[in-house]
Write a protein that binds this DNA or RNA. Structure first.
Lengths: 141, 141
DNA sequence: TGATACTTGACTATTTTAGTCAGGTTTATA
DNA sequence: TATAAACCTGACTAAAATAGTCAAGTATCA
């Protein structure tokens, strides 16, 4: 089990954005350079973030992206959700006709995965972008 | 992010084993039939579980597998560990010369993934095989 | 009007996953 | 002691997911 780099990059880029998001929009080019993420890949990621209204785009020269909400209101769960980082640990269909193993009953571990999902999602719902920015500011001292 | 079926099958098979593990060893063939998991795949999985001393094998006719410890003492973390289900969510190298992003510093989100790892591992260390067996026994009433 | 930056969609090499397959070895029991 | 059940091992592979790249735009500011 691992997170994909898409989700990881999304969070990295947004933390970067949140730190520089005072007056001017931040260009993906800058983020790309600072974080070492391919510009093209960032564009894919930000396209999704924009659709989910986590960021806003500003076109033209000096354009870039701006947070669409306060950092405090952006939870990690929103971010992962936007970039399709599914925190569904296992393929047991929720209430399909067939059980998880092709039989008519739930598999022996069905409840377990449900619990695990809640556990992880809970973590992501607690953490906001602001928490991460602060964490970095502190470490910087 | 998702768990692989190898880890899921390992847990399913062990819960099954734990339930029938009274007197006789349980054959993989039986588990395969009951749980709908390919026999060959089960053999791969149990080979690893045996190396980690989670189960013991009994060879010959009427052979099979037996738990090597009490169900209470087998934590899910042991199981995932054995079948190589890495709960390392992200590829930031721990203390390599290079940082996570090819730079000399830790990436902005490094601490986050460490925390997440702990959070998930904590879940797996809490849960024992016995808990799962009990959970199923209760649901059966 | 040019440079900068966003926008979109298609494409692809690589890696991982989820097994299968083949060819063993060991041992209880008839 | 023969045989079949069951374990054991390693190599192989199709399919899916991942991590991007590439190409061809469009919008807007200076």
């Amino acid at each position: 089990m691992k997170l994909t780099s898409k989700g990881r990059y999304a969070v990295m880029a947004l933390v970067d954005l949140a730190r520089f998001d005072n007056i001017n929009p931040v260009s993906l080019r800058d983020i790309s350079l600072r974080q070492g993420i391919s510009l093209d890949y960032l564009e894919q990621i930000f396209s999704r973030l924009r659709k989910r209204e986590i960021v806003q785009s500003v076109r033209g020269t000096q354009g870039g992206y701006v947070l669409n909400k306060k950092a405090k209101e952006i939870k990690l769960s929103n971010i992962f959700d936007a970039v399709d980082e599914k925190v569904k640990t296992v393929k047991c269909k929720k209430e399909s006709k067939k059980g998880c193993n092709g039989k008519t009953t739930k598999c022996l571990t069905h409840n377990l995965w449900d619990e695990l999902d809640s556990h992880i999602n809970n973590f992501f719902e607690q953490k906001s972008l602001e928490d991460l920015v602060k964490d970095n500011a502190e470490r910087r001292i």
